[in-house]
Nucleic acid binder design. Structure first.
Lengths: 330, 330
DNA sequence: GAAATCGTTGCTCATATGAGCACCAGTGGC
DNA sequence: GCCACTGGTGCTCATATGAGCAACGATTTC
């Protein structure tokens, strides 16, 4: 009997029939040690597949790979849902993660957008006490577009703060201004400067990233035109983080535009000990890769498919050891 | 945390992360015993799914159920293949089973048809020594239809015998005759009678079953017209075994037709200690059920889907104990 | 209110299992 | 031919795990 077939028989008898390795050894005319090794080989060759089917399950092996490949402090990967509620699972996972985050942040910096709004919705009331939730990029002054509804910048921060019995500190400024001078002026204003100062002292950041295309909230909110975004893409933009557009290397694409953007800079996120990226969906794979490989986040919360894309693609700066993440079954 | 979620967490840490139950207990603030119970529950609730993916894998748990529900001596169930090669897997399994059959039959009775031909093809040369392979139902005289090719009745028996270095004994008679009198006459012929006598002494039988519709080999070979089959269906026929049509209860549908059919009767199969039914495909579920629940076979070789259909449907004579077939993982 | 019953919990103990190690057989270089 | 070497094999031993059991608490039943 071929070696592979032997593995199959052993696996059947062990996992399906509940026989002990010793019994299988007798049945297959070998020793129990050989059976043990056969089973081990069957497992990592993928002949035996062990899967945990549950919407709230996680993919610990992928998480480990992500941490190792990108030097992240933590990674949360939820299974790819059959339908399109990846967004829902991921934002719930992010809410769970935030609630379980220790030490509980006293000041939490957040961005805004569809994803953050979804996270806020799923947060358990009472997830923390006395947390000050600070907006880290502008976006409240322009009236929200019809589609945005209640999920706009201000209400996201307010909701998160409310559920923690804390206080929301909004950034009273547009996301992007028309002139760099105006931006400088508004940032020097006491109110805005104060908020930004506070934001920089945040003990944790929670943000998502946008795709550089017409679907961006920045376009939807009217800060940018579709043409603007097209040009950014020409320059290599893959998406935006807190309103600032980056290329695949995580670098600011258009310094001039960046100089008109209000909010904490990427350096703050890079230096923070806890900056959590929440990101889901196939369209966001390129941005996710840019963020994660340029060290913009220290924690990622994402879906299985994105995680696989990030780990399988070798086009990232493979500086960290890529140790075998062999899964093990007792 | 809900109980189910606790199971999920424990399963993740155990199966994905390779942690010990003790460690998980510490992590989840419980005892290792509770973790063990959580894992057990997760397994039989199907949250943890352990699957063996291999074309030659078997479904031991289903086999056990089949044996118990129908009082079979043995059952072989191969996984449902993604594509349409269920036929191929099942016939290979049947060939394997035949080769592994102990005691090695000295006289093997076989039927003929597409399935048996496929089994013969997959049999390993040298699977046995000195086996006499006897045809148990007629079918060599009419020239085979264009489609049947080399897989006709005679060549199947010859091939099986050849691969065992044995001898094929063909039944020199049509499958179905036009008049009962002719049938009686031919059966009393010394040659035919001798073969039938030998067939009755077979130590093992290997056969398949046909569906009662136009696709039947009996129609294809010209023994019956489509209209004949329609009428049989009217009378409750679900399919044929060795050329004899049965209803869902396994009873002969049309005694007059049966009296014109040459070959060993169903009583011989029922009384044989080893009569192996090889059957695959959704269209054959009804016949399979009829054969299996009426005791026409003592061993079944089939695909997962058919096995599930047989076990799940409660319309069979549930005389045998249906003990829990709980699968177990150490 | 008392009793009975059921499911849960933490335990003891026997056992199944994996890690680590010495050893052997085949294999290829010299 | 000789010798290092690799890959597999059977072993010992520490450990992880499940079966079984007694105690407990909750819920139902009278």
């Amino acid at each position: 009997m071929s070696d592979e077939l032997l593995m199959v028989r052993a696996a059947e008898l062990y996992y399906e029939d509940g026989k002990t390795q010793d019994e299988i050894g007798a049945l297959l005319r070998t020793t129990r040690w050989k059976v043990g090794r056969l089973l081990a080989k069957a497992r990592d060759r993928g002949i035996v597949r062990i899967e945990i089917v549950h919407p709230r399950a996680r993919r610990l092996s992928l998480e480990r790979l992500l941490r190792e490949q990108y030097g992240l402090a933590d990674a949360i990967v939820v299974p790819a849902a059959d339908d399109a509620d990846v967004q829902a699972s991921v934002s719930r996972a992010a809410a769970d993660y935030l609630a379980a985050l220790r030490p509980i942040p006293r000041v939490l910096g957040i961005s805004w957008g569809r994803t953050l709004s979804a996270v806020a919705d799923r947060l358990t009331p009472g997830w923390a006490n006395e947390v000050r939730v600070v907006q880290i990029n502008g976006g409240i002054s322009l009236s929200s577009a019809p589609g945005a509804g209640a999920g706009s910048a201000a209400s996201t921060a307010a909701l998160i703060a409310h559920k923690a019995g804390g206080q929301a500190i909004l950034l009273p400024s547009p996301a992007i201004l028309e002139h760099a001078a105006t931006k400088a002026a508004i940032e020097s204003d006491r109110t805005v400067a104060g908020v930004l100062e506070l934001a920089k002292t945040a003990t944790a950041f929670l943000f998502s990233a946008g795709v550089a295309d017409g679907s961006s909230v920045l376009v939807e909110s009217g800060y940018l035109s579709a043409a603007d975004v097209d040009e950014l893409v020409q320059q290599g933009a893959v998406g935006d983080v807190v309103g600032r557009f980056i290329n695949a290397e995580g670098e600011i694409v258009d310094p001039a535009l960046d100089a008109r953007t209000v909010g904490v800079g990427h350096d703050v996120l890079r230096e923070a000990s806890t900056s959590v990226l929440v990101i889901a969906g196939r369209s966001k794979h390129p941005v996710a890769r840019a963020v994660v490989s340029s060290g913009l986040c220290s924690v990622i919360v994402t879906d299985e498919e994105t995680a696989r894309a990030l780990t399988q693609d070798s086009a990232h700066g493979a500086s960290h050891g890529t140790e075998q993440g062999a899964s093990h079954v007792a």
